[in-house]
Nucleic acid binder design. Sequence first.
DNA 1: TAGTGGTCTAGACCACGAC
DNA 2: TCGTGGTCTAGACCACTAC
Lengths: 254, 254
Amino acid sequence: MTKSVVGTGPGSRPPPEGDGLGMKPLYRQVRDTLIRRMVDGVWAPGEPLPSEMQLAAELGVSQGTVRKALDEMAAENLVVRRQGRGTFVARHDEDRILFQFFKLVPNEGPRHFPDSRVLSIGKAKASAAECGALSLARGSRVVRIRRVRLLAGLPLLVESLSLPDALFPGLTDMEIPNNLYGLYSARYGITVARAREKLRAVAAPEEDAAELGVPPGTPALLIDRLGFSLDQVPVEWRVSLCLTHQVHYLSDLT
Amino acid sequence: MTKSVVGTGPGSRPPPEGDGLGMKPLYRQVRDTLIRRMVDGVWAPGEPLPSEMQLAAELGVSQGTVRKALDEMAAENLVVRRQGRGTFVARHDEDRILFQFFKLVPNEGPRHFPDSRVLSIGKAKASAAECGALSLARGSRVVRIRRVRLLAGLPLLVESLSLPDALFPGLTDMEIPNNLYGLYSARYGITVARAREKLRAVAAPEEDAAELGVPPGTPALLIDRLGFSLDQVPVEWRVSLCLTHQVHYLSDLT
DNA sequence: TAGTGGTCTAGACCACGAC
DNA sequence: TCGTGGTCTAGACCACTAC
């Protein structure tokens, strides 16, 4: 049992655990502890966490504090809570990808997960741009993947990925699945927890246009995505050139 | 005093207020009540709500339930909570627009609110597309505004707006400010609470290209935004054609 | 000093799911 | 039947703001 914090009577809490500065509320400390354990692989995606009562007892806080931490994590899509069953580490299944990470939806009809066709895969010394995006030291190596993704059999986008070789050893020798985030999680224990996308409209370069089967110069949506792990480290840089005749990028301003 | 629900002892709550079906939890009923009051103009943007204790007493629920309702509303950017001061109805000031509704950020440098130059304004019978987007009856009238928006003096985008004339009487006779959402709020008591944007890459049509000072056919980002009021009614349809040489559209996947 | 929201605790009942 | 998370209540202390 790891009693990281105390819990005495109602309201009788000392000035949040004797530190003079950057003090965090208890529920956030609990949240950070739980995320740390997920990073360390204590619970794998899809597995249940201990119950609120068990976590509260172990961490020496009240059930309400654990609840607030878990509610926050559920809002961040890090865990899934189900009444009567328990709290589970979120998995990178197709539903989550479609809901959280894949914002391209058909102009008509239901959302679908696109198929993939790998064009190339290999390692190289990271470019300056890659070092900047992924916060790598100069001279680091990266894995590069290039692939076409298709929706309903039609080419939708060309995608260029860069990943730190140090984090994904042996990736170039693997079968590249359609759902990459599932692979990162299953083979490397790395969870892409959030991402930041920058969008621009550009004229499709000749090489990409050929893969997509359109004339060079066709207007296309350039999506520049940086994916961050549970502990906020950039782990994947993905640049996609996307045709938007049959689909659009959906953004909810909430 | 409007006692919409009872509050007796701890835990002694009847099967959520005797209705057989679509039952909502108490805190959500409280939230809906407060939103209804905001729609009715009981509290204007920028004004403080009553304290948690006062609301709890008036509504006949515990402070914790009011707190949960207000926390949810704060997460939706409907209210702003400040320790020691109170809870305030969110205003459509430039900071909120920049944070919540204006996703175009310079490739380098800080975010800025763009200037505007109105090209035309007038009323017309709503097109089929406008009726569909704004859920209007055929034959309804709309206000149309067309304007150019500039960042650092340079044309950034051309914007075409459609609004139900019934909701915005006299709008065509007004001075059109830079911050339209502030006007909707101040003059018509209508708050744009959330929006849905669809993005595509297109070739700039000749007319728009001329306004933007680029050759026709230049790739541009087409942003199709539908804005919804506090009570989920579509109140504004806005289509923007945007150059993305100096800026990009920022989307956080959380 | 008084009042506000922020945090933390404790304990009750409920709806749901597995058994 | 039991254990889970979901809701609701009650009451304590704290940090911050205004006066």
